[in-house]
């Protein structure tokens, strides 16, 4: 992705007789392929093969346990078009992405700038914000379930102190999604903060010195130096976030089970329900294909949208 094209080609420095060189090249070839083989076998079997296979399975009426099945053409896709629950899950995923991505980006960037500047030496803060990234989502979801508990939870206790009667967060179809978004912001921000932090620290001091000489305020420095120079990082962060956000599952599974009344049933959760609850492998694979295409198209759109403004000058 952000791969630096700086590889050095091994020089054919040694003068070997032509025959020896050929033997070495064959030897190299064999060695190289042998070295690549184990990884290739795993990646092919568990990444490429299934990625292709979902297209095939999506054309069948396969039910996991039933031995007999057949090809049904595009029936599953036709069904998708009229499946209200599918579109509900698309909408919920959209809400989740719109709710969580900008918030995380803003917070991650602000923290990165703060930690790169005034708090550069306070490694403690970096650790704190980053800690949830290393923690398991199931674990933190269990903790947050308690924070959100209507009677015994800290959140409503705090709200009670300022005289507000808090809702039953996870059991309310209005508040369940925001609750999940808040948790995800808490768990995910540190990850993007670290990426931004590397980007911010990469920016040469000279730019700021020049800006200060021009009398630029802090805000102007941010708008004219930091933000433009971080464009490639922002592109990366957005792509990663969108891809990750579209796949949100664990928090939903643990905290709400897609409820109440499907208010938090996101795409991957719906896919899971279809594949592993009602065991409709054919239909679930069609959902997977659509998800795959969504992600591919989104990545391209973001790339194109950003491609024009990406500055590699740094």
């Amino acid at each position: 992705m952000s791969e630096a094209r700086t590889e050095r080609r091994p020089r054919a420095a040694l003068r070997l007789p032509p025959f020896g060189r050929l033997r070495r090249r064959i030897g190299d070839l064999v060695t190289a392929y042998l070295f690549v083989l184990p990884a290739a076998a795993v990646l092919f079997t568990f990444q490429y093969l299934p990625a292709i296979d979902i297209f095939r399975i999506s054309l069948t009426n396969r039910l996991l346990l039933r031995p007999r099945w057949g090809y049904v053409g595009l029936d599953n896709y036709e069904r998708l078009l009229n499946d209200g629950r599918f579109w509900n899950s698309v909408w919920n995923t959209f809400l989740f992405v719109v709710g969580s991505v900008p918030l995380q980006i803003a917070l991650a960037l602000a923290l990165a700038i703060a930690l790169a500047g005034p708090l550069r030496r306070a490694g403690f803060f970096r650790t704190v914000f980053f800690l949830p990234v290393a923690a398991s989502l199931v674990g933190v979801s269990v903790i947050w379930e308690w924070i959100y508990h209507p009677r015994l939870g800290v959140l409503n206790e705090l709200l009670g102190m300022i005289g507000v009667q808090g809702p039953n967060w996870l059991a309310s179809s209005t508040w369940a999604m925001p609750s999940i978004i808040l948790l995800v912001v808490w768990t995910g921000t540190g990850y993007y903060m670290v990426i931004y932090l590397a980007g911010v620290l990469d920016i040469s001091k000279e730019y700021y010195e020049a800006a200060v000489l021009d009398g630029a305020s802090r805000w102007q420095q941010f708008v004219h130096v930091t933000w433009p120079l971080l464009t490639p990082v922002t592109y990366l962060v957005i792509v990663l976030q969108v891809i990750n956000s579209f796949q949100v599952f664990t928090t939903v599974y643990v905290m709400t089970g897609g409820g109440p009344a499907r208010a938090t049933e996101v795409l991957v959760y719906y896919l899971y329900q279809r594949a592993f609850e009602s065991l409709e492998f054919g239909y679930a694979s069609a959902i997977a294909v659509v998800l795959f295409l969504f992600l591919a198209v989104l990545t391209v759109i973001i790339r194109v949208g950003y491609g024009r403004t990406v500055t590699y000058d740094r």
């Binding site: 296979d53 594949a275 694979s285 997977a288 992600l295």
Partner: peptide
Amino acid sequence: MIPTTVTLTANFLI
């Protein structure tokens, strides 16, 4: 670029 969530059904069968 291949998300794991997408390939679950096929991987299960494999």
